[in-house]
Design a protein around this nucleic acid. Structure first.
Length: 778
DNA sequence: ATACTACGGGG
DNA sequence: CAGTACGTAGTAT
């Protein structure tokens, strides 16, 4: 019994060798597989032999043979081009593309290891119920006296570690008299600390490394510090060095053989929260229960950290160490909760955990399809070119059904989710790019409300996969009901959720502009059919005496203003749900998603809800970004609280007026007006120089230095012509020297008006200029 | 109107 | 390293 944790390849004697990293009951195992050959496909215009002969002449080509494949609706004899090395593929595919007889190349952009896992039909992360995986969490603290830490200058001061076998410790290299914390392991230096961390991972036989934002911060930072200290971060199995790789615009920290799972992107996908700071996520999952961490609350502001380190005080140092360890504990607990689903997704998609834990829902679907395409000899469509992407972007369709909300505050809201609707529609109407407007069903196909039709004779590739997922889910749910052992039951529950996730992503995939199997007509047909059902559900809700206050794509929000008793409202909603589900086709289901005591609805896609536990769900309104000043962010928060917690719109409006008044009087401290924006490129690299760059240019004349990657903290002053011209680095601004109009009109009002406009307030009124003039007033 | 630039988490 | 996110919003032009 084995569990495939990871895979990569190395090149030996100019040949690629696949390495598979397993964990079994008896320990670790690395299996090497030589002899797997890189290949891709080409399709000729008409003469396969002519094309094959030309390809065979190209250097690096080992051989060319024919393979019968399905290309969308057609059968083609594709040329399978085997080459010497994975790295040769880009060059050879480019040369093949240029041949006049070549119509197109396919599957020439698939990373070698992924190709192997598919072709060899491997499943990663099997047997995680039987083989215990050792999981650790890591967190670092750095010395950051100048705000944003800079790895070239600021050392790591502490590293905390916690694993699922009970070891938790803080590594650090500063000794302070009187400190007696059992969990501290003292190191000689930063370099020694880094090495001790690597040693810990090795000795504890860690299989999965987790952290929070470790892709873009901790490991990136460790990696730079290690280089600076001339030590190697050989965290991987077989002394493989930690490798930072570009994944889109983000980084990924890759540890060979011990998959690194950054819990942050996982949380982003799994939960819908207003913020995703470690503390927020922990509390939303476990409430105030701190048993996962220390009993002591130790919260430290980022800006205080270096002071606490430098002070040399026993208390400061202890607080810092406890805080650090606490974060590792929190991360570990969050990760242990989320990992089972990630393991399951890795199994279903059949790609390594490191990859699947970073995939968006569109990518997950795509990899599943690529795998199934291999099994069915279907030629995988190419990813869209930039031009094709732009075309798809322009043809963005009015797909989703969104009802304009009833603006304002609503009480006692019941939310139903209609998501399984779309999978059912795809299956029952056989919606697939290859069944779309087929030649055989011009009469009698599945006629969509959009005018297109879908084949009745041949089952489509995607509907078939979807049906498989749903059948599997039904079986899993059935088994779950019969299962009595809690551990096994939980496992089945995770399995069915993974299948549900994938099934529910299929519709979105058709409309996903980067999809290989993108199909706008399919997506449109799905929503068109969906509208019929959602309308039906809404009508039925109305008959049951509910108000439909809002609906978007697959969800409906209901209220019953005349009923005060919450239990009765929920009971009646359940009754409605039962009724509608009895009328819907069997596979379709309206699900109860939750009850919200209150919500404020503004426009489509913009609303805020408060749950029974006091948690806010905010959609399309948030200004919690570093390029908004604190005054704007804080005012928005106060407004939402006044509306949702106190149900008092006038209080909300008065808060705004009060803040606006203070801004006008020049009473707001500069730090609350500071705007932070990253300088993402070097100075010469800008075509348009926004406020932060112009502030930088002025400060440079005064002798300050800036470089790419710096976070620019600036204030809008009164001095200058345009907005950009008036921006100044905060250090060159006196208290009170700020552009009140800018802060009112471009920060505070935009942040709150998008909420308060729904309640009938005018901008002028919020600015304290009195009620809006009506025409009658003239 | 269109192009460019930035946000998120982490300390 | 056979691949380079995402969806949205403000400011400049």
């Amino acid at each position: 019994m084995k569990c495939l944790l990871d895979a990569d390849y190395v090149t030996r004697n100019d040949r690629a060798v696949i390495r598979l990293f397993y964990k079994s009951e008896s320990g670790r195992e690395i299996v090497e597989v030589p002899g797997f050959e890189p290949y891709f496909y080409a399709v000729s215009r008409s003469e396969n032999k002519k094309l094959a002969d030309e390809i065979k002449k190209l250097p690096g080509v080992v051989r060319v043979d024919e393979k019968e494949m399905t290309k969308l609706k057609d059968k083609v004899k594709a040329l399978r081009i085997v080459v010497t090395q994975p790295g040769e593929v880009p060059r050879i595919r480019g040369e093949v593309k240029l041949l006049s007889e070549c119509r197109g190349v396919y599957e020439a952009d698939m990373p070698f290891t992924r190709r192997y896992i598919i072709d060899a039909n491997l499943t990663p992360m099997e047997n995680t119920d039987a083989i215990k995986l050792n999981v650790c969490a890591v967190d670092i603290e750095v010395h950051n006296p100048r705000g944003e830490p800079n790895a070239q200058r600021d050392p790591i001061i502490m590293m905390s570690y916690a694993d699922n076998n009970g070891l938790a410790k803080v590594l650090t290299y500063k000794r302070i008299d009187g400190v007696n914390l059992g969990f501290i392991e003292y190191c000689k230096s930063e370099a020694d600390m880094l090495e001790k961390f690597v040693k810990t991972v090795e000795e504890r036989e860690i299989d999965i490394i987790t952290g929070y934002n470790t892709d873009n911060f901790d490991f990136q930072y460790m990696s730079e510090r290690a280089e600076k200290n001339r030590v190697k971060l050989n965290l991987g199995v077989a002394d493989k060095e930690l490798k930072m790789e570009r994944r889109g615009m983000n980084m990924g920290a890759r540890v060979t053989g011990r998959p690194h799972v950054d819990a942050y992107p996982v949380c982003r996908r799994t939960f819908n929260l207003p913020r995703y700071q470690l503390e927020d996520v922990y509390h939303s999952m476990f409430g105030d229960d701190r048993k996962g961490g220390l009993q002591i609350k130790a919260s430290v502001k980022a800006s205080e950290m270096h002071k606490m380190w430098d002070s040399g005080k026993k208390e400061d140092f202890e607080t810092l160490a406890k805080y650090s360890l606490n974060d590792a504990h929190f991360t570990l607990r969050i990760a242990l909760e989320l990992l089972p689903l990630e393991y399951e997704l890795s199994r279903v998609i059949k790609q390594p955990l490191y990859e699947t834990a970073r995939m968006s829902s569109g990518q997950r679907v795509e990899h599943l399809l690529v795998r199934k395409a291999f099994e069915k000899n279907i030629l995988v469509p190419n990813r869209p070119s930039d031009e094709e992407y732009d075309t798809r972007d322009d043809e963005a369709y009015e797909g989703a059904f969104v009802v304009d909300p009833e603006r304002g505050i609503h009480d006692n809201i019941v939310l139903f989710d209609f998501r399984s609707l779309y999978p059912s529609i795809i299956i029952s109407h056989n919606i697939d790019p290859a069944t779309l407007d087929c030649d055989c069903c011009k009469e009698g196909g599945h006629k969509a409300p959009t005018g297109h039709y879908f084949c009745m004779k041949t089952k489509g590739f995607i509907p078939e996969i979807l049906e498989g997922l749903i059948k599997r889910r039904m079986e899993t749910k059935k088994a779950m009901k019969q299962e009595t052992e809690p551990g096994r039951k939980r496992l089945l529950d995770v399995q069915q959720s993974a299948l549900k996730l994938l099934a529910n992503s299929m519709y979105g995939y058709y409309g996903f502009q980067r999809a290989r199997w993108y199909c706008r007509d399919c997506a449109e047909a799905i929503t068109a059919w969906g509208r019929d059902y959602i309308h039906k559900a809404m009508e039925s809700a109305k008959k049951h005496g509910f108000n439909v206050i809002y609906g978007d794509t697959d969800s409906i929000y209901l209220t019953k203003p005349e009923e005060q008793d919450i239990q009765k409202i929920i009971a009646q909603a359940r009754e409605f749900q039962k009724k509608i589900n009895s009328e819907l086709p069997e596979a379709m289901e309206l699900e109860y998603e939750g009850f919200y005591p209150r919500g404020v609805f503004i426009t489509k896609k913009r609303y805020a809800l408060i749950g029974e536990d006091g948690k806010l769900t905010v959609k399309g309104l948030e200004t919690r970004r570093r390029d908004w000043c604190n005054v704007a962010k804080d005012t928005q928060k106060m407004v939402l609280d006044a509306l949702l917690k106190d149900r008092d719109p006038d209080k909300a409006a008065n808060i705004v007026k009060e803040v606006v008044g203070k801004v006008k009087e020049g009473k707001i401290p500069l730090e609350d007006l500071a705007i932070n924006t990253q300088m993402t490129r070097s100075l010469g690299g800008y075509v348009n120089e926004g406020p932060h760059i112009q502030a930088v240019r002025k400060a440079m004349k005064e002798g300050m230095e800036f470089k790419q990657g710096d976070i620019i903290t600036y204030v809008q002053t009164k001095r200058g012509d345009s907005i950009s011209d008036r921006a100044r680095i905060i250090g060159y601004v006196e208290e009170g020297d700020y552009d009140a109009d800018y802060y009112i009109n471009n920060q505070i009002i935009p942040a709150v008006f998008r909420i308060l406009e729904a309640l009938g307030y005018s901008e002028d009124e919020l600015k304290g200029l009195g009620k809006q003039m009506t025409l009658g007033g003239w």
